[in-house]
């Protein structure tokens, strides 16, 4: 629907550590990375590798200790209107209907209610929930609730969509159908997408490039180009080979 509008991310010498029992534990060590406008970058890594931390820094929810992040050449400082985040939990407001929740992001940004709801309806339809506009979150299944969260993020028409294990809490069947849906939305919306996941198949299904964060000190982050036609076929031999390559990275194959 939209044309590419930027959404280029430049990460320079980014480092972050946490205090843990009196010691400093480094999770990100001078990371450099360029995320291209409109690409889908998937970040994988063992737990504790800092993938969620990296996403939260990109979102502006956490500050880096050193280095910085620029979006379209501008250094970021906190949250910004060009970004939207989809969390692992849908994080819906239980007292608002689906429509109210999806319009929420626009409303807090000062868009008049009628206009916000009009745009919200478009994205509710896009995620296939048009007949549930008036339902409350308690009436939705996990997959439906997560779609409402996705619609809410899309409604503010961000240049960059940040997804933190967005399908991590869903059952296997719902997960696969939601991966297809995310891939479709990404291609239709022409948005830069940064996805954190620990599901390697999901990474290959969605990614233009996969970033593998190292677990141990001194290890280097690795980037793998996923050169497969879309929509992707999980059973295709090249898909399987990418999966084996990623498994090897984790020493599991």
């Amino acid at each position: 629907m939209a044309t590419a509008r930027g959404g280029e991310v430049t990460i320079r010498d980014l480092s972050k550590s946490f205090a843990l029992g009196g010691r400093q534990l480094a999770v990100l060590r001078s990371l450099n990375l360029d995320i291209r406008s409109g690409e889908c970058l998937v970040i994988v890594g063992a737990s504790g590798s800092g993938k969620t931390t990296l996403l939260r820094i990109l979102a502006g929810l956490e500050k880096a200790d050193g280095g910085g992040v620029a979006i379209d050449g501008r250094e970021i400082d906190g949250v910004g209107e060009e970004r939207a985040v989809i969390f692992q939990e849908p994080r819906l407001l239980p007292w608002l209907t689906v429509l109210g929740n999806v319009a929420f992001g626009l409303e807090v940004r000062g868009v008049p209610k009628a206009e916000a709801e009009k745009r919200a309806r478009f994205y509710i339809a896009l995620v296939g929930l048009a007949e549930f506009s008036d339902a409350y979150p308690t009436q939705l299944s996990g997959g439906m609730a997560q779609r409402v969260g996705i619609a809410r993020a899309l409604t503010v028409q961000p240049e960059i969509l940040l997804l933190d294990e967005p399908l991590g809490a869903l059952d296997a069947m719902t997960k696969i159908s939601m991966q297809e849906e995310l891939a479709r939305i990404w291609s239709e919306e022409n948005v830069t997408m940064v996805v954190v996941t620990h599901d390697l198949e999901e990474a290959i299904y969605l990614a233009d490039r996969v970033l593998i964060l190292p677990k141990e000190k001194g290890g280097a982050a690795r980037l793998i180009d996923v050169d497969l036609p879309r929509p992707r076929d999980r059973s295709e031999s090249r898909f399987v080979r990418y999966r084996e390559e990623l498994l090897r990275e984790f020493g599991l194959h």
Binding site: L61, E81, R83, A84, F87, R91
Partner: peptide, 18 residues
């Protein structure tokens, strides 16, 4: 009130009063 909901509102740029 769930701090995750507060963080969600913050991501959309909501100010303290909102």
């Amino acid at each position: 009130v769930d701090p995750k909901l507060l963080e969600m509102a913050r991501v959309y740029g909501a100010r303290r009063l909102t």
